[in-house]
Design a protein around this nucleic acid. Structure first.
Lengths: 129, 129
DNA sequence: AAACATCTACGAAATTTTTCGTAGTTCCAA
DNA sequence: TTGGAACTACGAAAAATTTCGTAGATGTTT
């Protein structure tokens, strides 16, 4: 997988969230957060197209862009890199820190983790030693 | 906190792991993983010193560098940024994905998470609504 | 003491990423 | 039918990061 740069990831986020969009639409959304010229967004999306990070179809004289990579896959990929770089490969340390930092965990979320844990314990038991 | 670049983080990792070290020592360790010139490491560490990411003391004609920022603090900071950028601020999604990706979770680690979860549930109950 | 190795400082090249200006085209409204 | 608004393509400037060469000082070996 081609690793997206920070600016590219920002655009992917918009496409994942909003679905297929024109440069104008993406630029408008980015513009809410920070100053960014139209041609800057355009150029980025053109580069992303070359790299295969997005697809695009013509719609009249404009283009409609869509993410070509799945959000989950990209997150996995970046997560792996981040764990290696920042937590020396220890996903557990990352998890513990993430859970520890964010006190505001809802009951539902806790349940979700618990069931995931339960699943992992099962796998533990079924694993041939 | 000054955000370390990728190369700077790599050096911080060495200093955290090995403790105070000379440029030579850091460079040797980095050199195991990839080609990197001595003066490259030197320059990076000088820059980090200017930025306040490391401290250094003279020892004869060489310098001994030490991390000036705590590993935990830096991880927290970078984690927060990463969650925002990559998981749109949802630490839970990150946690779920991290747990899901890495099947190889030891029994001890599962216990650690469970007790953390238990602690969080307590806080939940004690929280004034 | 001469040759050599090793250290710092520092400028600057090289690379990567981000940003934007300009040119050319097309659409639409006055 | 003319002028302006919006679009793409593209080169290149700007900014950020990484890499390294060279110079000068100091220690070490023969």
């Amino acid at each position: 997988m081609q690793k997206p740069t920070d600016a590219e990831l920002e655009i992917l986020q918009v496409l994942w969230q909003e679905g297929p969009s024109t440069v104008r639409q993406v630029n408008d959304i980015l513009g809410r957060r920070r100053d960014i010229g139209y041609t800057t967004s355009l150029k980025l999306m053109q580069i992303m197209h070359e790299k295969g990070l997005v697809t695009r179809i013509e719609d009249g004289r404009t283009h409609i862009y869509a993410a070509a990579v799945a959000e989950r896959d990209t997150q996995s990929y970046l997560l792996q890199e981040f764990v290696d770089q920042t937590f020396r490969g220890s996903a557990m340390n990352l998890v513990m820190q993430a859970l520890g930092n964010h006190q505001e965990v809802s009951a539902e979320e806790i349940e979700a983790i618990k069931s995931l844990i339960a699943k992992m314990e099962q796998e533990q038991n079924n694993r041939p030693s």
